[in-house]
Design a protein around this nucleic acid. Structure first.
Lengths: 239, 239
DNA sequence: CAAACTCTGTACGCTAACGCACATAAGCCT
DNA sequence: AGGCTTATGTGCGTTAGCGTACAGAGTTTG
């Protein structure tokens, strides 16, 4: 993933040719996303798509009994609302702001217009959607085969990859909801990481101190997902 | 999912208008898929896409240590090889024939030509891909929250939905690979279902005796996936 | 027919994660 | 300051699934 020099831009939009982008820009509206805000409820039509800048959005699958699991996460490298151009209009999953910040918002029908021009924007959105497919698939495997320690590392790395700094505003309770495990399990795993000096946290603020250390502990799932985003979304491959 | 009157056709292709289909037909080649055959290896370019007729293909995520999990399954309702038109060309997952049978094969570049006409075929393939997204997402949740009993029911129902009869040729060992659990775990769960009179099996042949009974035991994941295929792939919504 | 192999059944100890119950501590509010 | 809420730590007993080992029954092969 090509890290933009400043996070005032969305990497997906950054891959578009000048003229494409300039046609789009007047319609992009900068909005502030607040922690916990819902961008998409299960089965509901979305009015906009969102290109996060320094915010992070979780895609969650929520079950009847309220239990939930994060199936993918979207930051400056992507867009929230692929179901709009994929044709289904709605999706059974939810999109919740996991880290407050800004995003560029675009009206749904405008995005569809762009998409149906069948130009660079379409190619880009489709490649992004494929990366999302891999992200979800790997999440499914990780849920099956890896323990909470490894999954927490994966989650932390995927999250700070999408943030400008090393700090995450997120309680252990919320992380547990994302991973679909007990809060106590997160407490325990996070405690290990803290004692190992890899992170420090305090009442809903997590700081990553030793990124390479986390990478040494994480399962292969993180690398698979990251490489797939890198492969599918870079200047050489897209344009 | 509109069950075709006979399984000699692929439901996805069946949704195409006459003229679209007739343009395609000369290039569709009927092939026989054998149990265990690989249609797509991790990271390898696919030469063809496959529209299963009475065969079933599993999409698997395989890990470094050889452990695997099925992330979705494709039968007469779908197509194997979405990465070709999504732009990525390759994918990190594998496609393995889970139930032998026939499929229609189409050269990759021909499918791409069809796709880039931006007509009904494109709309259809994109809607199918969105259904696949939901399928994967729900698999991820199910892996996290449901026990082997429930997952086996889900797997059995999703499989026979894609077959003409009630019989499945599949050992417990292979089912275990699909679900990403131990073979002994499948033996135990399958034993419960057999004692309850819902299925009967014998050395690699499973017969579903009481479909409603299975539906009563399955977790919500099955219904979510099935309804999403129904919603996204029917005549009213597509054309 | 006998041997080899495949598929299924069963048992047993082990571990990760669960559900629950509380304790502690830090921040917030009046 | 004192009380409330929120976040984290900890300690149970319980359970689902794992790894391993092995037995028996069915099928294929030589």
């Amino acid at each position: 993933m090509p890290v933009p020099c400043d996070f005032q831009q969305n990497a997906l939009l950054g891959l578009l040719p000048e003229e494409e982008l300039s046609r789009l820009l007047p319609n992009l509206e900068k909005v502030t996303l607040t922690l916990g805000q819902s961008l998409c409820e299960s089965g509901q039509q979305m009015k906009h798509v969102y290109f996060p800048l320094d915010s992070i959005v979780s895609l969650l699958c929520v079950m009847e009994n309220g239990a939930s699991t994060e199936i993918a996460v979207v930051g400056y490298e992507g867009v929230v609302g692929v179901s709009l151009f994929m044709g289904g209009e709605t999706t059974p999953s939810r999109a919740i702001v996991q880290s407050a910040g800004q995003a560029l918002r675009l009206k749904g029908h405008l995005l569809k217009n762009e998409f149906y021009r069948a130009g660079p924007m379409q190619r880009l959105l489709l490649r992004y959607t494929q990366a999302l497919l891999t992200h979800m698939a790997q999440t499914a495997v990780c849920n099956r085969h890896h323990n909470v320690d490894q999954q927490l590392c994966r989650w932390l790395l995927l999250s700070i990859d999408r943030l400008p700094g090393n700090e995450l505003i997120m309680t252990q309770e919320l992380i547990a909801n994302m991973l679909g495990v007990r809060r106590e399990g997160v407490t325990e795993s996070a405690g290990k990481l803290q004692r190992a000096g890899l992170i420090s946290y305090h009442r809903g603020r997590i700081n990553v101190l030793d990124r390479p250390g986390l990478e040494a502990r994480v399962c292969e799932c993180y690398g698979v997902v990251k490489e797939e985003y890198d492969r599918l979304l870079n200047h050489n491959s897209v344009m």
